[in-house]
Simulated assay, not measured.
Amino acid sequence: MEEVILAAASSYDRKYYFNSEFDAIPEGIKTSIQIMLVSFTMEIGGLLSLVYDEHGLLHFRTECDEEDILYDEIGAHLKIKKMMVDQEDLLEGLQMFYKVFYLGEPLE
């Protein structure tokens, strides 16, 4: 099983993507995800994605173009750690949602 992108934002083309497979997620949560990803790319630059692995765990993935001298790699790492703490409940809920509805695991 391969990884599944939940959402992504890019500072390069100023676009936001939300995977339509997850339209069942409430609008308020979708908005929170969008704010989180877009604010990251506006502050740090590059591209940020929320990705489910084969076990249903949600990961932040950031990358940048090789010639992007403005991308703040240290700031990216620190901001992701802060988002993981500040948005812990949201991220755990998204993981549970994926595990139950997409991987068919029982609700704990």
Rank of each mutant, 00 (worst) to 15 (best):
E63G: 07
A9L: 03
I74F: 08
Q95S: 12
P106N: 11
K82Y: 09
K30G: 05
L70G: 08
S11I: 04
V100I: 15
Y12N: 02
G46V: 06
G104P: 00
D86R: 15
Y71K: 11
G104K: 03
Y98L: 04
L107T: 07
A24T: 14
V100N: 08
D65K: 15
L91A: 05
L107H: 05
S39D: 13
E66D: 10
Y98E: 08
Y71N: 07
R14P: 02
I69Y: 12
G104L: 06
M42G: 14
V100L: 06
P26H: 14
L70S: 14
M1I: 06
D23V: 04
D53K: 04
E54N: 08
S49G: 04
D53I: 05
E105T: 05
V85M: 13
F40G: 01
S10N: 02
N19A: 04
M96E: 13
M84H: 04
Q87Y: 08
A7I: 03
A24W: 10
I25S: 03
F18C: 00
I44Y: 06
I44G: 06
Y16G: 06
M83G: 05
T62W: 03
I74R: 07
D65T: 10
F60V: 03
N19K: 07
D53G: 04
K82N: 11
G56P: 03
G75P: 00
I44R: 06
Q87V: 00
E54A: 06
I74P: 00
I29V: 14
P106V: 11
Q34P: 00
I80N: 07
F97M: 02
Q95M: 15
D68E: 02
L58C: 08
E105P: 01
L91E: 05
I5C: 13
D65P: 04
E66Y: 09
E88L: 12
L103S: 02
I74V: 11
A9R: 02
T31D: 14
D89P: 05
H77M: 09
I74K: 10
F40P: 01
Y52S: 00
L37R: 03
P106F: 11
E67G: 09
E73I: 06
